[in-house]
Every structure is written in structure tokens, then in C-alpha cells.
Amino acid sequence: MDIAELTALLTPEGLRLLDEIGPLDNTDDAARAVSRLRAAGHSPDLVAGVVGQARLRVRAAAKFGPFAERMLFTRAGLEQATRLPIAARHAGRFRAAGIERVADLGCGIGGDALGLAGLGIRVHAVDADEVTAAIAAYNLAPFGDAATVAHARAEEVDLTGMDAVWLDPARRTAGHAETRQVASGEWSPSLEWVFALLGRIPGGVKLGPGFDRALIPDDVEAQWISADGSTIELVLWAGALARDGVRRAALVVRGDDAWELTAPDDSPDVDSRELGAFVHEPDGAVIRARLIGEVARALDAGMLSTGIAYLTSDAALTSPFVSTFRVREQLPVDTKKLAQALRARGIGTLEIKKRGVDVDPAVLRKKLSLRGDEAATLIVTRVGSKRLALLADRV
């Protein structure tokens, strides 16, 4: 979306059309809507803005639920926005720390600011991009003076009167549609500026889950977060927002439920052991936080192989921090023999998990030519230099 489209959209006519057109689920629906609106005499900018937003609202429902129906987006802004349930959890930490006013520096379309304002925290949201800031202002308008928005660079914001900051440095090239990731040295604001600011005022900074651990300051809490099986972000908490004695945390969210594992530092891995009755795959947040050892000790499990994130045990224990599989049997690793074994067992639906081996699950599935009514999970990994194929069932 460019400024001309946004200007046309932010009118009574534009917003009325957007509400009337409803969700557009696919390109055919969008094409028909374009033809209908153009035939009615609406300008190209208005048509592009309305149809684009109707498409984005459909996609945004996964992150913002029913709130998406009354929000505006850019494609890049939606991709980078924090899911609203996660933003609410971030906001809960600010509220628990007694924070009343937060500067959201790099607010994007306003996802995290919505979480803060929704919990009664006054927020001043700032974005360096004019269109994005305008969209954030629209999305935060229901909160009135409790949520203000400015078009400015984070480095230029007067933080007088603010109790804390929330930062989401731009990690991609500028734009509202197709963007690309840039090196950490090109982030805006820079990491050096961000970390210096967090040394002066309490706050949190949202980063990608694959952020270089060597760059994490020693005096912050690093919290990796997964949602519904995907590791989505790393948040570094500083000052009053960092918990005493916690430097590593893994927050696992599934639907409305959440579990967290914390530790004062990386947790040493446990020793490897022989394959047991169960294999456990740690959640991505647990792996990123290097807390596999904590989970292993709770499950009385060992590493299936040193350096590979699979655990094994004989006890039928489960944990929200792992996916657990009951091992049926070990199968041949050779693709032809593996296919024969699966057909003999009537396996037609197969989930393929792999770690430590150069296997493309999509390619392997095609080569297996599966057929049958049974379902199972295939775990392909290695123990030392030996490859291993395990037929298993999710617990």
C-alpha cells in the first residue's frame, strides 16, 4: 500500500466500501471485486486499497482473530506483527512490573501496542515509515488518548515521562510488500543503540528466534517463544522487566495454554543412552534456549545421540516442552526397503521427522509411494555415524 491508496481508503467512502466488500479469500474473489468496484466508478487507488485490505484481513485473522475485521495492514507489517495473544503476554509482564507508560519504538502496524493498551497501559507508538505509522494510528484509535502514535525515528523520540520501552528493530528492507532480511549491522535502530538504551531504562526488544546468541548481553533475560509448534521470536528483557535469577527461558504457547521453563543459564545436556520405548522431540523454544537438559532430567531421559535434539526414555512420561512418540520398531534406512516395510504395514499417512541427517521429507515421501489406511510417524536421525529410521506413534 502506498500513500495514495491509504489516503483514498481513509475516507468515509473508502471505509464503508471495505466493510461492505467483506472477506476476499482468493485471487478469483479479488479479481471480481476489482471489476465490480471499477465498474461502479471508484478510483484505481481506492479500489486497490479496499481490495488489498480485504485480502489482508483474511490472512490477519490467524494473528488477530476477530479484531482483524476492524484493522488495517500492510503486507510486510502483517508478516512482522506480533500475534495478539503473544502481545498480550508481553503486556502482562509490563503490568506485573508496575509499568504505566511505555514507548513502543518501531511499532509497525501496532500489534504490541494493542496488547499494552488493552491492559490499561498508556503507550506512545512510533514508526519511521509514514504509511505504517498512519495504519498504527487507525488501529489504536479506539483507545483514544491512552494510545498515541507518531511518525518518527526511534532515536529521535523524547522518552521523558516513560517508564519503559518496547523495541522491534527493523530487520528487513523498507517497504510495504516484498522485503528482504538485512544483516544485523543494518538494523534500524542499531543493536548498539538498542542495548545502550536498555542499559538506561527498563524494556524489552523483540528479535528473531535465530538471533546470534553471542550478541546477547550478559545482563538481560533471553526468552524464546513458540506458538502452536512454531518458534516465533526471541525477547530480551532488561531492568525491572528481567526476572531475578533468570537468564534463559522457553515459553511454549498452544492455543490459550502456556508453559514456561526458566534457568539461570544454558542447561548442560544429559548423557546419551540406548534407544528406549519413547522418543521425545523438544519444542523449538526449548532447543533455542538450550534447556534440553532441564527437560531431559524431568523426563528421566537421555540424549538419543550426542548433539542431536532427540531424547529417549523407557518411562511413559510426557511434558508440554516435548512432542513424545512411542517407538513401534526400527525399520531399514534404505529407501527401497523402507518403502516395502511401510507398504507391508499398510501405512498410507506418514509424518516424517528428521534431525542430523540430510533428508528432504517431501522428496522421501514421494519416493516411498505410500498406500494404505494406517497412519504413523517416521523419525529419521542418526546415532553417531549410523543412520536410524524409527516407526512411531505420537503420544
Rank of each mutant, 00 (worst) to 15 (best):
L317P: 00
A240W: 02
A128I: 02
A31G: 10
G185F: 07
V157S: 01
H42G: 04
P66Q: 06
A289W: 01
T7G: 13
L10K: 08
A177L: 12
D219P: 03
A128L: 08
T148L: 12
T132C: 10
A40L: 12
H151R: 11
N139D: 07
T173K: 09
D112L: 10
F278V: 01
A296Q: 14
I225L: 09
F195H: 13
A242K: 12
R343F: 05
D29L: 13
V286E: 09
Q223E: 15
L342C: 06
V246R: 08
A152T: 04
R343G: 15
L6Q: 01
C107L: 03
H176A: 04
V157E: 04
P202A: 12
Q340V: 06
V194F: 00
A277L: 14
S184M: 06
D168L: 07
K337R: 15
R101G: 04
G255P: 03
M162R: 05
W259G: 08
F94S: 04
E69G: 02
D373M: 10
A88D: 13
L6I: 03
R32P: 00
F64W: 06
G41M: 02
L119F: 09
R55Y: 01
H90W: 02
A222I: 09
G356H: 05
L116W: 04
V51A: 07
G208D: 06
T27W: 05
R59W: 00
I21R: 02
V333N: 15
A392V: 04
D212A: 14
R89S: 09
R213Q: 13
A301F: 05
A258T: 02
L338A: 11
S230I: 13
E186F: 06
A341G: 08
V246H: 09
R75N: 09
S385I: 12
V157F: 01
V51Y: 03
A285G: 10
A277C: 11
H124T: 09
D45E: 15
G346A: 05
V131R: 01
R93P: 02
R89M: 15
E351C: 00
D127C: 02
R93S: 07
G210D: 11
R55L: 13
F64E: 04
V123C: 05
S35A: 14
A341W: 11
V149W: 12
G245H: 03
A154L: 06
P282R: 03
A137Y: 06
L17S: 09
D219T: 13
P44M: 07
V149L: 10
K63W: 03
A339K: 10
L390F: 10
T306E: 14
A134H: 11
G245N: 05
L167S: 08
W259T: 09
V220K: 11
V395L: 15
T160R: 14
A177G: 07
A62Q: 13
